[in-house]
Simulated assay, not measured.
Amino acid sequence: MSDSSSRVPKQQGPASLLPGGVPRSAEPRTFRAGFSRPKRWRARVLGSGEVAHHSASIVRLAHEEQARQAGKLLRDIDIDAYLDKLLAKADLAVLEVDHRCCGFCAFYTYLPDLGTAFITLFLVAPDVRRNGMARDMLEVVAASAAQRGFHSLTLRVRDDNAPAIRFYLAQGFKVLGRHDGDLEMRLEMTAFGTG
């Protein structure tokens, strides 16, 4: 892929949808991990024709995280059946680092009457965490949901997953309640340009 084809057109600042967001372009960004060369990344929502290209990476990332969390990422369900459903029915945002899928967010926007898009799985590979990439992926999810008329994002997170809870709270999510060992959290999005 040439450098020009990896560039994403500038957008009207989806960061303004998240509290405290600093508007920035959607062009690929860079970071330096340790002594390695700088890495380029971008977060974007996949078109329906792109899901098949990313499906193996999404399945691999989910299985790796399920193993890291000793089976607690997705509890009491068949992970492969669940991933098949996500790949077939969910909207998907991906995090690409040096043209490699290193994270994804599966979210549902097919019930507009609810007014909230539901994030069902949000995952970033450990080797690229804590570099602002997860926030970028959340911003493209928020922008996509807002363009479809949704005013909030809702998710559930295991109540013992402290790093994820800290991340969501830092992004502006509020705890709505507890359900079967999970916290239900919601992010009320602001309109474009009102950051």
Results as ranks from 00 to 15, higher is better:
Ser16Asp: 02
Ala70Arg: 07
Val45Thr: 10
Val140Ile: 13
Phe118Leu: 12
Leu46Phe: 03
Glu64Ile: 11
Phe104Ala: 01
Tyr110Gln: 08
Arg24Asn: 07
Ile77Tyr: 02
Leu74Gly: 04
Leu155Arg: 12
Gly34Pro: 00
Ala90Asn: 01
Leu123Asn: 01
Phe173Ile: 05
Asp159Ile: 14
Leu123Gln: 05
Arg100Trp: 03
Val8Ala: 08
Arg29Cys: 01
Leu169Arg: 14
Asp160Ala: 15
Phe173Ser: 00
Arg42Tyr: 11
Val94Asn: 01
Ala33Lys: 05
Leu123Tyr: 06
Ser16Leu: 02
Asn131Ile: 10
Ala88Asp: 13
Glu139Phe: 12
Lys10Cys: 10
Arg42Met: 04
Ser55Gly: 06
Ile119Ala: 04
Phe35Ser: 13
Leu86Gln: 12
Ala62Thr: 11
Ser36Phe: 02
Leu87Asn: 00
Ser144Cys: 15
Arg166Ala: 15
Ala142Glu: 12
Asp91Pro: 03
Leu183Gln: 14
Met1Pro: 06
Ser25Leu: 07
Glu96Ile: 09
Ser152Ala: 15
Ala15Tyr: 13
Ala56Glu: 02
Ala62Asn: 10
Ala56Trp: 01
Met137Ala: 10
Gly132Gln: 13
Gly13Cys: 09
Leu18Asp: 00
Asp84Met: 06
Ala52Thr: 05
Phe167Ile: 14
Ala125Asn: 11
Ala164Arg: 12
Ala142Lys: 14
Glu184Ser: 11
Val8Lys: 11
Val141Tyr: 10
Leu176His: 09
Pro28Phe: 10
Cys102Ser: 11
Glu64Asp: 14
Asp136Cys: 15
Leu114Asp: 07
Asp78Arg: 06
Ala81Arg: 05
Gly49Arg: 08
Asp76Leu: 06
Arg7Ile: 14
Ala62Trp: 06
Thr154Val: 13
Phe173Gly: 00
Arg158Thr: 12
Gly20Trp: 05
Arg75Thr: 02
His63Cys: 11
Ser55Met: 02
Phe107Ser: 00
